[in-house]
């Protein structure tokens, strides 16, 4: 393998690793990808926002994300370390991570609401099919809206 081929292969593998790591909320790539998807920006555009090149984005993506469970208390310290290591804007990095975390938690909230509504719909269908006025065991006590209105 020539040096050039070797470099190409290393780059290919690192990009593949970055894609895989970006599926895991433990890694920064997860939040960078969510940010790109929500704000409709490409990785190259995100690199410009942060002030680095695309190659650095690959490395940044496999890093541990600041503020993940077990490291919550080190968010600022981690952002500081990463911005120094990669020569990127500290405030932009913190904003991007915080925004992405908000998107992710919103999506998770939406998924939970959807699943509660879905289980209520299934329970309603069970009762309808039973047709004898009996209450199905899977029936939630109240529909989600009622729970919400009581708060």
């Amino acid at each position: 393998m020539t040096a050039e081929n070797q470099n190409q292969e290393m780059d290919r593998l690192r990009r593949r690793a970055a894609r895989r790591f970006s599926e895991d909320p433990f890694h920064l790539g997860f939040y960078l990808s969510h940010y790109c998807a929500e704000r409709n920006v490409t990785q190259a555009e995100l690199a410009l926002i942060l002030g680095c090149d695309e190659n650095a984005m690959t490395s940044l993506g496999v890093c541990r994300a600041p503020g993940v469970p077990g490291f919550e208390h080190r968010f600022e310290e981690d952002v500081e370390l990463l911005s120094t290591e990669f020569q990127i804007s500290k405030s932009q990095l913190a904003d991007i991570i915080n925004n992405a975390r908000f998107f992710v938690s919103s999506q998770e909230g939406a998924k939970t609401t959807f699943s509660i509504r879905k289980s209520y719909a299934i329970a309603a269908q069970d009762r309808e099919e039973a047709g004898d006025g009996t209450i199905s065991l899977s029936r939630p006590e109240d529909p989600p809206d009622a729970i919400e209105s009581r708060r």
Partner: peptide
């Protein structure tokens, strides 16, 4: 020590030779 860039160093050093 939980350095946030440790995973990047791990990938850089091990991925290619291991593969």
């Amino acid at each position: 020590e939980g350095h946030p860039r440790a995973q990047d160093h791990l990938v850089r050093a091990f991925l290619f030779p291991m593969v």
